[in-house]
Design a protein around this nucleic acid. Structure first.
Lengths: 206, 206
DNA sequence: GCCGGAGTTGACCGACCGGTCTGTTTCTGC
DNA sequence: GCAGAAACAGACCGGTCGGTCAACTCCGGC
């Protein structure tokens, strides 16, 4: 049935996200993927031409899910500096949820997979760039607001948004190593100061 | 001969570091490891009980190499704030060197491998914690100096050092995604401001 | 001068890898 | 109610995986 087929594909993507988050790409096999999804090999390759194609789909869905949460924050009525800090709650919350069900902090699919496949598989590389671009938009929106209200000097929005993403990723790494999701939030406290220093040292026109 | 045996082990660790940096742990096989090292399977398992034991050895050597460079910077006569920024030159330089020989930015062995194996293999997890502790020492030394000279309010040294490491890791991720090692240096500019914000919001006694 | 052990070799192991193929079932459009 | 496509099943493929093993070389100590 068609409805079931869609959910089969979805199930595959969701379990893939779970497993790849836990052990990366190379250490998770197609058999395991199928078993965990409750489907057969043939069904797997009916929906995806390859294992790495599933990885791309997982990255896309994963990045869209987070982008939606970032958008909600960006469009909320809170003060811009508050919204900036709240962005960090998104990965922090996801990490806490994961930890409560799996027992350990999980990290970020984008950050984690980038080494393993970014170089080897161009499609994955593009998916990762797409994810960062998606996340940069709501974050850039808030940075815009910070500049407009004078909290921040004029600054390259895209570069600043990526700095924020980098701060998150750094925090996620600490969270993973120490198995403590609250480390992500700590990084949030310095984000605005960090951007301010960047704005004063590197004008956007440079 | 004994001399050759030591260098065989060293070769194995060095080529493992190269290969793991390029494609992670799971996607690099023992056969490839042996072929690239110019040795045989038996020799591999003469020196290491398992593939992941080699990973641990590679992490240890890798972290020691960087720790030595951090130490040099920490003990140099430069102003403390300059030393803080110079820490970021270490991964930036390594990334540039790698890019010039391999054509792409490589990332960091510790940051990259932590997802793949941190949970699965406790030995690797400990090696990663060891690496971060090693790096925290010279960085903490400079943070101490910043506090002593009044540039920074009193702050939890260990936590602050890990923040700096997190900033580096975030920068390394950007460098990898954009294949541009200079992204690491950009993160350095805001490091001091970031720590200052942290110091004022979270006193060390908390 | 030979003995023991470190170093090294490469064939070999079963398990599992990603992926293919041939069906069978189930839904949909007509 | 049937034709055709989409969904699903699962046996099967060659190859590679991490790891083992028995044999051999080489060298320092006695």
């Amino acid at each position: 049935m068609r409805a079931a087929s869609i959910s089969t594909r979805d199930t595959l993507i969701d379990t893939a996200t779970e497993l790849f988050l836990g052990r990366g790409f190379g250490l998770v096999g197609t058999n395991e993927l199928c078993a965990a999804s409750g489907i057969n090999k043939g069904t797997f390759y009916h929906f995806f031409p390859s294992k790495s194609a599933l990885m791309v789909a997982a990255i896309d869905r994963y990045s869209e899910r987070f982008a939606a949460e970032f958008n909600d924050i960006a469009l909320s009525g809170a003060p811009a500096s508050t919204r900036l800090e709240r962005f960090f709650d998104v990965p922090a919350k996801a990490n806490r949820a994961w930890k409560s069900t799996h027992g350990f902090a999980q990290g970020c699919l984008i950050g984690n997979i980038s080494l393993e496949l970014a170089v080897v598989d161009p499609d994955v590389q593009h998916a990762i760039k797409r994810a960062i671009a998606r996340w940069s938009m709501p974050i850039g929106h808030v940075i815009n607001a910070l500049v407009a209200e004078g909290t921040l000097q004029d600054i390259d929005r895209a570069a600043a948004a990526e700095i924020v993403i980098a701060l998150m990723q750094g925090g996620i790494l600490l969270a993973k190593v120490h198995n403590d999701p609250s480390r992500i939030t700590i990084l949030a406290h310095g984000a605005l100061s960090h951007l301010r220093a960047l704005a004063s040292s590197r004008p956007p026109a440079s």
